[in-house]
């Protein structure tokens, strides 16, 4: 029954790169339909954890279960197909720089659906509206967009296939305070819109203030170990020395 409650489960996850242990027995469950933020110092293993969720890395030992499926049991082909259930907003949006806004957002639709051009255009306009961008940006290249606009386009692309899990890799790093607030608002709005279909949001972040504002659950990773994982209000009161130190920085 637990698999219905949790979107992602890590059981005794260990990941070694050569002799270096990056993840050291992570036991952790991410609630379905909620926003969970994973905090931690640089080099704590946050990105490695994210890559395990996507099946881009495989555990040295332990199990990663996503939407009830043990990723290590899936074939290469099934895993690629399974990844269509994910959307991801990269740190710097990772838009294809030779493609226009329309082509970027429509990319997953062109690849994985049999939609006509008109159907794709309609869906892209719908997504542009959802992320608060005007239609005049449709035919602009990423180089002609501001940092905030690129993030919005990246988010629209991530949402194109109505993912069940959306991952944000440090979504506000390098942005000014106004754009940071805009991106955080957008994450919240997206989560609210996706709540009826139980969309789960996982955020990797360093931004404490934003984490407390938008998250339902907060986890803290240190040297490959999950040292704390609590609902946001309880996390604020955590007495774990590392968490306190991180919050006081």
């Amino acid at each position: 029954m637990e698999t219905n409650e949790y979107a992602i489960e890590f059981s005794h996850l260990i990941k070694n790169f050569g002799e270096h242990r990056v993840l050291d027995g992570v036991d952790f469950k991410i609630h379905k339909g909620k926003i969970t933020t994973i905090l931690g110092f640089s080099g704590a293993g946050k990105s490695t954890l994210l890559k395990h969720i996507l099946g881009l890395l495989h555990p040295s030992s332990g199990v990663v279960r996503v939407l009830g499926k043990d990723l290590s049991q899936l074939s290469e082909f099934s895993l690629r197909e399974f990844r269509q259930k994910f959307g991801m907003l990269f740190q710097y949006a990772a838009l294809f720089d030779s493609k226009t806004t329309f082509e970027n957002i429509a990319f997953p639709l062109v690849e994985f659906t049999k939609n006509s051009y008109d159907q794709n255009m309609e869906r892209v306009k719908e997504l542009l509206d959802a992320v608060g961008l005007h239609e005049r940006t449709l035919h602009r290249l990423p180089s002609e967009l501001s940092g905030g606009m690129r993030k919005r386009v990246g988010l629209a692309r991530a949402l194109a296939l109505k993912p069940e899990i959306i991952l944000y890799d440090e979504p506000t790093t390098g942005l000014d305070p106004i754009t940071t607030k805009m991106v955080n608002d957008l994450i919240l709005e997206t989560a609210v819109r996706g709540r009826e279909r139980q969309m789960t949001s996982v955020i990797i972040s360093h931004d404490i203030a934003a984490t407390f504002r938008i998250s339902d659950y907060v986890a803290f990773l240190d040297h490959g170990k999950m040292v704390e994982h609590l609902p946001v209000e309880e996390f604020k009161k955590s007495q774990h020395p590392l968490v306190r130190r991180f919050m006081e920085l």
Binding site: L56, R80, Q84, M88, F90, A94, D97, P108
Partner: peptide, 18 residues
């Protein structure tokens, strides 16, 4: 190489495209 350093290659893989 430019696509690799700007995470465009990762974006393809995350979408399930080789």
């Amino acid at each position: 190489g430019t696509m690799k350093v700007t995470e465009q290659v990762d974006a393809l893989e995350v979408m399930g495209i080789s």
